[in-house]
Write a protein that binds this DNA or RNA. Sequence first.
DNA 1: CGTGCCTAAGAAATCGTTTTCTCGGCGGTA
DNA 2: TACCGCCGAGAAAACGATTTCTTAGGCACG
Lengths: 343, 343
Amino acid sequence: MAATTRSTIVAVARRANVSPSTVSRVMNGHTTVDPAIAERVRAAAQELNYSPSPLARSLVLGRTQTVAILVPDLANPTFQGMLRGLSRAAARSNYRVLVADSLETVSEESLLAGELRRSSDAIVLCAPRMPADRLLEVMPSLAPAVVINRDDPRLAAPTLSADYEAGIRPLAEHLYDLGHRRLAYLEGNPHSSSNTSRLRGLDAFCADHPDVSLDRLPGGVAFEHGYAAADAVLASSATGVLAFNDLVAMGLLAAMHERGVAVPQDLSITGFDDITFARYTTPALTTASVPDVELGEQAWVRLHALLVGDAPADDVRVLPRLEVRGSTGPAPTRASGAAASSD
Amino acid sequence: MAATTRSTIVAVARRANVSPSTVSRVMNGHTTVDPAIAERVRAAAQELNYSPSPLARSLVLGRTQTVAILVPDLANPTFQGMLRGLSRAAARSNYRVLVADSLETVSEESLLAGELRRSSDAIVLCAPRMPADRLLEVMPSLAPAVVINRDDPRLAAPTLSADYEAGIRPLAEHLYDLGHRRLAYLEGNPHSSSNTSRLRGLDAFCADHPDVSLDRLPGGVAFEHGYAAADAVLASSATGVLAFNDLVAMGLLAAMHERGVAVPQDLSITGFDDITFARYTTPALTTASVPDVELGEQAWVRLHALLVGDAPADDVRVLPRLEVRGSTGPAPTRASGAAASSD
DNA sequence: CGTGCCTAAGAAATCGTTTTCTCGGCGGTA
DNA sequence: TACCGCCGAGAAAACGATTTCTTAGGCACG
């Protein structure tokens, strides 16, 4: 019968008439023990429905068989993808994943990271809004750790990132090739590293195309932010809009639909990330594809190397791939332009 | 200076010239200790950058400050929502979340659940495909635990569920009211409880409407399954399709679009769950809304009650809410029917 | 002035393992 | 036959905290 109280190693030892050491040895198959005794121990363990306490093991072994991941927002499909990639890859090595999202609390992010790290063996840090100096400050206490989407060269930890700076350019060029000259960028969080990266890319683009005007508009990171930005977009008289990410683009898309603004005839919209659902919007979203699941998997590969002391694998820097779909089209002629044309 | 090696409680004790007991007392504020000494201890702790090992605490306190959640598929937005709800609610009580998805390995699901449970204080079990008897068998060893979407009355654990049986009926009635008489149901996993629940609901519906014919077609749980079912749907000559969930519906939608079948003019399609993206498809998806995030939050409420020994809150059984959007419309007249009309 | 209680801090037990360390016995060789 | 070395199993230390148990000292009261 299964013991009502959790059975311990000494219970098994008593039942098999051996010492706890021997039970441990049998369970872990470390040293060679007399086959007869081993069998007796296994039987006793079975009867008592014994399995070693992970806690006690962790304490003495110094490893928890757990990795943590901190993401800014569990509602964002991109971070969900990273979590999924990490979780599945780690599971293959019999590691579990401790998850937390920091929501909007940038201030306590580093404390949270520390706590997570202390109850796991390693951590994946995805904190686009944490100030660079603070990040550098806490990193040593977080090791082993990998960082996602922070490209500060001073970071000692392995880094996985998408090259947002280079990745946004093809989107802009795409719009340019379609004849768009008045563009708007719906910003993400102003202080996030991924936002500033995109801005750098766009600045470079503008420098190469003096005939383009680019408006920076307040945006955000989710549907509602894109939705709320609709009026500002129309007021800007831009014909092409680069949204911070797919969610923002979808929100904008919905708002434009409600206002009767035709996409892409009156207005072209691009997203970023290529979340699964980007191809199912109306029209399907032109975007730049970031392999989130793969980033999560690769994060595990880096972490695993750190954990077993292997030579650290190279940093990963993926180039987002332009994905042209229906939400972008030729720039409207001046006459048939969007409602905002002032004359 | 921060110690290079993790500082322990005895290090702090030595530095403050007190016993480890006193340090512990100060850190936890349990007994009253001399203010001067307390200050000395705090200073020492600060200087050594000390924070107690969660592992050691867990071992002696018998709680890990962690809850686990097992979901069948981390890629499914519904389970992501539950995870999010759980994680955020638990975080408010300073609990962390250990996450795992069982993917397609039903066989090892109960082992995985046990492992997860043993390294946490409680578990949320979301295992729609685990056989009922096996579920009943493992539940005792998993307590404290809550179960999501299993309505077996023999279950001792608190249960959170959506009433799929009752919830699918309004969808069917909706199609019926639109004139559809030939319906098809794209099944989920045949052995999943949520699939059989829907089937029960549909059977009842059919019993009340003898003039309706319902085809059961093999489907699945993800985009690709819905996509792949397109030909079978057309061959069935159904005018209204109830997909197992929104993902399947979206896959079907895409396939129909490619085939030039107009939705809802030629074919009406409904989903289930009302994932965030359901309103952004073309046309937007008629579906039944399940509050996944709230289910996750309520799971935490139940778990928390169990953990602190409160009276268990009532089981939750939510009724999915019909959400009519653009993917359903009047049944086509016989002449203008879908491509499958054989003449 | 002595006894008793209360407080505050240290000593030691505990949580459940793993892993040295130690010791007894056995076999092989000189 | 005696000794050395090895092997298998138990004893004990360690992991890093918390918490009971103990004890010393101070204060109040008789």
